[in-house]
Simulated assay, not measured.
Amino acid sequence: MSRTVKSPFDREAQYAAKRLAVIRAAGAAFRRKGYHNASMVEIAKGLGLSKAALYYYVKSKEEILYECHINVYDAMDGLIKSTRVKDENGLERLQSLYGAFAHMLTRDGLALLADVDSLKGDYQETVLARRGKIEQAVTRLVERGMKDGSIRKADPKVMVFFLMGALNWLNVWYEAGGRISGDEIADAFVAQMSAGIANGV
């Protein structure tokens, strides 16, 4: 009787999928309770794992927080690249990107967390660098809009801090399955952003 031998690639894919599930579940717990108040025991219990099994996928709570940040910035990088091919003015591209950011945060189970100070050493340095690159990309769109006249003149960095800060707060009050859907929130974010920065509005 022959036995089916699983490919090591299958095992690697299963491990990666389960590890991502751990990170996303932990991110949701961090969002609900705060990083310091969410315990590894609680995270493991929510996934139906023992605490020992949880440590098979991650080395520490800090590593989970780091991966939460990196997963979000990886997704944001992909969205930024996808908007580069569009023939739009600065405001239109920013609307597309900002809406995509909001959709991603309400739909994909990713959390844009603010607990960067809880990371140490290389973890914190890497996350700050990745966040800086995202902010630079958004700033370039704002500056492009100011140059082509679609966005009103203002300090672009202050404008970007305002826009990204609003996205940060999504994690505090948004609940999947609540009164307002993720699509409605994304549309509202784009409308409010446009009302605040569009030239001539």
Score class of each variant (00 low, 15 high):
1 M>K: 15
2 S>C: 03
4 T>N: 09
5 V>G: 05
7 S>P: 11
10 D>C: 14
11 R>K: 12
11 R>F: 07
11 R>D: 11
12 E>I: 01
13 A>E: 07
13 A>H: 05
15 Y>C: 01
17 A>V: 02
17 A>T: 02
18 K>G: 00
20 L>R: 15
20 L>A: 12
20 L>C: 10
26 A>E: 09
28 A>M: 09
31 R>G: 12
32 R>P: 02
33 K>V: 13
35 Y>P: 05
37 N>I: 01
37 N>P: 01
38 A>I: 03
39 S>C: 09
39 S>W: 06
40 M>I: 03
40 M>R: 00
41 V>E: 08
41 V>W: 01
41 V>C: 01
45 K>W: 02
46 G>V: 04
49 L>P: 00
49 L>V: 00
54 L>Y: 03
57 Y>F: 02
58 V>N: 01
59 K>S: 15
63 E>M: 03
63 E>D: 11
64 I>V: 14
67 E>F: 03
68 C>L: 10
70 I>C: 01
70 I>A: 02
71 N>Q: 10
71 N>M: 05
74 D>E: 10
74 D>F: 04
80 I>F: 07
81 K>M: 05
82 S>Y: 04
83 T>K: 11
83 T>A: 14
83 T>E: 15
84 R>I: 03
88 E>V: 13
89 N>M: 13
90 G>L: 10
93 R>C: 10
95 Q>L: 07
97 L>S: 00
98 Y>I: 07
101 F>C: 03
102 A>R: 00
104 M>D: 04
105 L>R: 03
105 L>T: 05
106 T>D: 03
110 L>C: 04
110 L>Y: 05
110 L>R: 07
114 A>K: 15
114 A>M: 14
116 V>A: 10
122 D>K: 12
124 Q>C: 09
127 V>I: 09
134 I>M: 14
134 I>L: 15
137 A>V: 04
137 A>F: 04
139 T>C: 05
139 T>K: 11
141 L>W: 01
141 L>P: 00
142 V>Y: 11
144 R>M: 14
146 M>K: 11
151 I>S: 13
160 V>T: 09
161 F>T: 15
164 M>C: 04
165 G>L: 09
165 G>S: 13
165 G>M: 13
166 A>S: 10
167 L>H: 08
171 N>H: 07
171 N>Q: 09
172 V>E: 06
173 W>R: 09
174 Y>S: 03
175 E>N: 12
175 E>F: 13
178 G>I: 09
181 S>A: 05
181 S>F: 06
182 G>W: 05
183 D>C: 02
183 D>E: 14
185 I>R: 06
186 A>D: 14
186 A>R: 12
188 A>K: 08
189 F>C: 15
189 F>D: 12
192 Q>K: 06
194 S>V: 13
195 A>G: 15
